[in-house]
Amino acid sequence: MIVSPPFLYALLLMACPLLAIFLFSFWTQDFMTLDTSFTLDNYREIVEKPIYGALLQRSLYVSSCVTFVTVMLAFPVAYFVSFHVRPDRKSLWLFLITIPFWTSYLIRVFLWKVILGYNGVINTGLINVGLIDEPLTFILYNVNAVIITLAHAFAPFAILPIFVALEKIDRSLLEASQDLGESKFMTFLRVTLPLSMPGVVGAVLIVFIPTIGDYVTPELMGGAGGKLVANMIQTQFLALNNAPLGAALAIVAMLCVTVISVIFVLINRRWLKGRS
């Protein structure tokens, strides 16, 4: 079977390692050696120590905000490209939208520091214009900075699924709605928006799930109060040498994200039904 090489590869390098990390989370690290007896100690520690709960909560909050901001900002752009751009220009627009996404991620995140920073582009700009007297401090080294930067990094991820859903909408439905007396705005609310929901749901999932795993942005932009669960996982694995606890944290984080995603899909299932 020709599908077997990629299937086996995904099985060996994704499914098996995920299973391994799951098992691993039930073991404990005893200084340099690994204690392989089954225990729930790691999970107990995550539940009992408030820092882990706080980190998880903050991570889910940041991911939700990023998802909301990204999708809200992206929808009008996807709508514009699908409905108002000449068909032969559409791929050029999509190309322009995706280019920043492919270019040096680390340096892009770092440059947001330059834009938002104390002597940054926004602050010096606003001071020179005379709108503010002192630099704004609420946009660097905190959760807001992390949200802005992540919303920028995941923008194309949100635009593309919405665009695809909008492209599939039969344009004659819109004419029909207006012929039957709906205004343009009501047509958008009652026809275009419901039909584009599969794309919106896709966009939400494809932004929400990976953002939980990012630790570059919180590390560079978050300051002391903006660290997220991914930073803690990284610390447990690489600095504290407590891989089992890190593994348990990774499992808990994944579980939270999965549960929230499933609930979100269930809430929106009536928009997803009956369309391919």
């Binding site: 098996c16 390692p17 995920l18 990390i21 795993g213 694995f237 990774a250 994944m254």
Partner: peptide, 14 residues
Amino acid sequence: VLPEIIVAVSLLVV
């Protein structure tokens, strides 16, 4: 859609 850190730590463990 898998967070990259999950791919990274699971392969690290293996």
